[in-house]
Design a binder for these strands. Structure first.
Length: 377
RNA sequence: GGGUAGGUACCGAAGCGGUCAAACGGGGCAGACUGUAAAUCUGCUGGGCUACGCCCUACGGAGGUUCGAAUCCUUCCCUGCCCA
């Protein structure tokens, strides 16, 4: 069975509703995938994720390789069992860490040499061993090792970076084809488009990547500091090139507006740390806009956090109480905020899908964005 | 009553003649965060201005010394501790 199938296309845009068929469940798309870097979506327990409708979460190859180690995960028969998650898992490759841990790594043709951010020990990632590690992790979708090009990048730098990522992509596919899943369920491999902010490089990258024939195609190296409009142009261009019948994944994006806009451009999958990280930092995403829960204006608010979203946290606790938890530095504050934000993001993607199926996506998008910016934004 | 240590901004606490509207914490107020080195980071926190500079009010109260005092002297008030 193919990984992906389109269910319905939006009549007015490139948006599409589909399904990802993994051995850990069927995932309706567009989908938002909560980020669980170290085998946990920070501050949210697995059964809460299920309650809020999460069907697939992320893990990170770099972090899980360092701690607890992919051998340890293998000892537990894979990440699903280790973390007690029955849904699907996508693991990122460590490509983003090549970007975010620039001072701790050296790039070579063969791969990337890392100094562990935990203890300074040296490690080496290659396109091949990153496949091996992800075989050990047993994620349903594995990502190729790439270089997430820093922004801004000179054209030459972008070109060199992109050529390296392409060579790595080819090696990754070879390594993937030469190895087998370890735990009796299928694994799929996605390529990652680069090219920085240069349209022709993006286009060329994707065309050459399509030839490698990955199970899905991702767009990487975006939302790294560039203006949103620039990202939109590149996503728009990308989805014109990428094959219809394979899932399209925009990595690391983004704000609710980013996601809704890119869904309209035909993106199927998203992940982002914003809902969870910002939750821990006191920013709450609600159906009437985002709020900073620490602000004094919520001290006496007996308003519920968010009644309109399928969120236990949002429907049962007041803003005033949540503020108190943050001010008092109580753990429950982080939990409730994270739950609300994840519930909100999942609700957003789920509703987007419904609207695509109903054929009224663009109208709904316009309406909801107005509501979201109507609050305190 | 005697001795002793001290009274500094919302709180705690440095400073002990000029570079002090006063370090540093905390608290308070706001902002940032996009394939997680993040329960993190940043800014503001006496008042008023024709503000990248000036004026006013400020280191318990009142006097004094000095060109100049949070810093030295006198005295008063208050607090902690010890002895009666």
């Amino acid at each position: 069975m193919n990984l992906f199938q389109i269910d319905k296309k939006d009549p007015d845009s490139k948006a599409r509703a589909g399904y990802l068929y993994t051995d850990h469940g069927v995932i309706p798309t567009p989908v938002f995938m909560p980020v669980g870097t170290q085998g946990t979506v920070k501050a949210i327990e697995q059964r809460e994720l299920v309650d809020y409708g999460a069907k697939i979460i992320l893990g990170n190859t770099y972090h899980l390789y360092l701690r607890p180690g992919d051998k340890v995960v293998n000892h537990f028969d894979g990440l699903h069992k280790f973390i007690n998650w029955k849904g699907a898992i996508l693991t990122d490759s460590g490509g983003y860490q090549i970007f975010s841990l620039q001072d701790l790594r050296k790039l070579k043709e063969e791969g990337a040499e890392f100094k562990s951010h935990i203890d300074g020990s040296k490690h080496f990632f290659s396109p091949e061993n990153v496949v091996d590690i992800q075989r050990n992790l047993g994620s349903d979708i594995i990502m190729v090792l790439d270089e997430c090009t820093p922004y801004p990048a000179e054209r030459k730098q972008a070109r060199d970076s992109m050529e390296l990522s392409l060579r790595w992509a080819k090696r990754s596919r070879v390594a993937f084809d030469k190895t087998d899943p370890l735990y009796g369920h299928r694994q799929f491999q996605f390529g990652i488009g680069q090219g920085s902010m240069y349209k022709d490089l993006r286009k060329e990258y994707l065309e050459r990547m399509i030839e490698i024939d990955f199970d899905g195609n991702a767009m990487g190296g975006l939302s790294v500091g560039e203006p949103a409009e620039m990202m939109y142009e590149l996503v728009d261009l990308s989805t014109d090139i990428l094959p219809e019948d394979k899932p399209r994944y925009l990595m690391g994006v983004g704000t609710p507006e980013n996601i809704l806009t890119c869904i309209e451009m035909g993106v199927d999958m998203f992940d982002c740390v914003l809902p969870t990280r910002n939750a821990r930092n006191g920013q709450i995403f609600t159906s009437r806009g985002k709020i900073n829960i620490r602000n004094a204006q919520y001290k006496l608010s007996d308003e519920l956090i968010d009644e309109n979203v399928d969120s236990y946290a949002g429907k049962n606790f007041t803003l005033g109480y949540l503020r108190h938890l943050f001010i008092a530095n109580e753990i429950l504050g982080l939990q409730l905020a994270s739950q609300q934000n994840i519930a909100f993001y999942l609700w957003l993607a789920r509703t987007a899908r419904e609207k695509i199926i109903d054929g009224c996506y663009s109208d709904w998008k316009k309406e909801i964005l107005e509501k979201l910016s109507g609050g305190n934004n």
